[in-house]
Design a protein around this nucleic acid. Structure first.
Lengths: 203, 203
DNA sequence: ACCTCCCCATGACAAGTGTCAGGGCGCGGT
DNA sequence: ACCGCGCCCTGACACTTGTCATGGGGAGGT
């Protein structure tokens, strides 16, 4: 049986190189290509035909979730394993919806990573069990599209006026959306709502 | 000449293991102990006498800066190389003040890490050049102790009343400190001030 | 002794924010 | 045809927030 060919995507070069070194210790695994941005994933996959792609969620250009969807469409034979820092419940759900076969957070023991890769390659699903339950309780985002937009625009501390200008809305509308989002997130406050929604991976 | 003995501290097990694998590829480097929390650094160092300690800044328990200071006091022969995700200017300055010999961000090429370790071991200082200039322009925190406290308490989106209660201050005083911090950070707004100060590593 | 800076506080005003009731438009499902 | 829901808007009200003037107390430097 031949080796499992891997694509590695992470924006931090040091982590990327380190993971590559770690995985290369396994005789049945081989890193065939490394990239540092989401939009390099598909071209690299088309050129090197990896069996499994390890993607970080936080990346410049295109994030790991979008890259997953793009990769599934362009190279359906390549399975996707998400490897990320943050165990945001929403990330897991969205990653699986986008077609990922596995989801591992970066504080799982190093020894398990190679196993996860092999399982994904074998067609199994790999999901952090603790995270899976969190994902169920947190569920899907209760926010409407517009509420999400407005909240996202509020992340940098912008005022209502600025948000309204950026989204071409009236200030009153922005405040209504914010108020509604605050209610849905159980916050009392714009800043709290942003933190809550972001923590659940809803933004 | 014998090998350089390394201590590795990072809260993400996967990254820790991966860095260990990467460094172990170098014949002159040897990872003798790995820890996942800041307060485990000193005990581990006392037991294993590493030549160089690689510390992450963001860690549970004690952060990498505090761990650096503690390590310098407890084991002066061990040199410290900070390896961190965020190139916050304030981090660099505070790390060097705490006695670190080097400062590397995680998106530097993997090949350079081993070099950085060797230089630190040789007694040289290793500092990301781009970061060094940023650190100069950003400089030291202009915030007073109290302003820092208040801003830190405001990070989670708390209201003035909550902050005041938590810090045993009057609401008016909290607002004065906030207003002053907003002015100093060039923000127009509490949320912006938090982001700006945090981005500079002042919190 | 004096000055400066930080700390804490008060009171008052203007601006920004969160909430609510109301109404119009469009879309999809019963 | 009707209803529910998301979206956009208005106007009004109460509350929070940011700013400013002002003042007292303490620590440190000249």
């Amino acid at each position: 049986m031949s080796t499992i060919r891997l694509l590695l995507a992470d924006d931090q070069a040091l982590v990327r190189g380190a993971l590559s070194a770690l995985l290369s210790l396994e005789p049945d695994l081989e890193v065939v290509v490394e990239v540092g941005a989401g939009d390099e994933v598909v071209p690299a996959a088309l050129e090197h035909h990896p069996d499994v792609a390890l993607l970080d969620v936080e990346m410049p250009g295109m994030d790991g979730i979008a890259a997953t969807a793009a990769l599934r469409a362009a190279a359906p034979d390549t399975r996707v394993l998400i490897v990320t820092t943050f165990g945001r419940p929403g990330y897991l759900r969205r990653a699986l919806q986008a077609g990922a076969s596995g989801f591992v957070v970066k504080d799982t023991p190093a020894a398990q990573l190679a196993d996860a890769v092999r399982r994904v390659h074998a067609g199994l699903r790999v999901v952090d069990p603790a995270l899976a339950t969190d994902s169920l309780v947190a569920g899907e985002s209760p926010l409407t599209a517009r509420e999400t937009d407005v909240l996202r625009a509020a992340r940098d501390g912008s005022s209502v006026a600025t948000i309204a200008a950026r989204l071409f809305l009236s200030e009153g509308t922005v405040r209504n959306h914010l108020s509604s989002a605050i209610g849905k997130t159980g916050a009392t406050n714009r800043a709290e709502a942003v933190i809550a929604a972001d923590g659940n991976g809803w933004l």
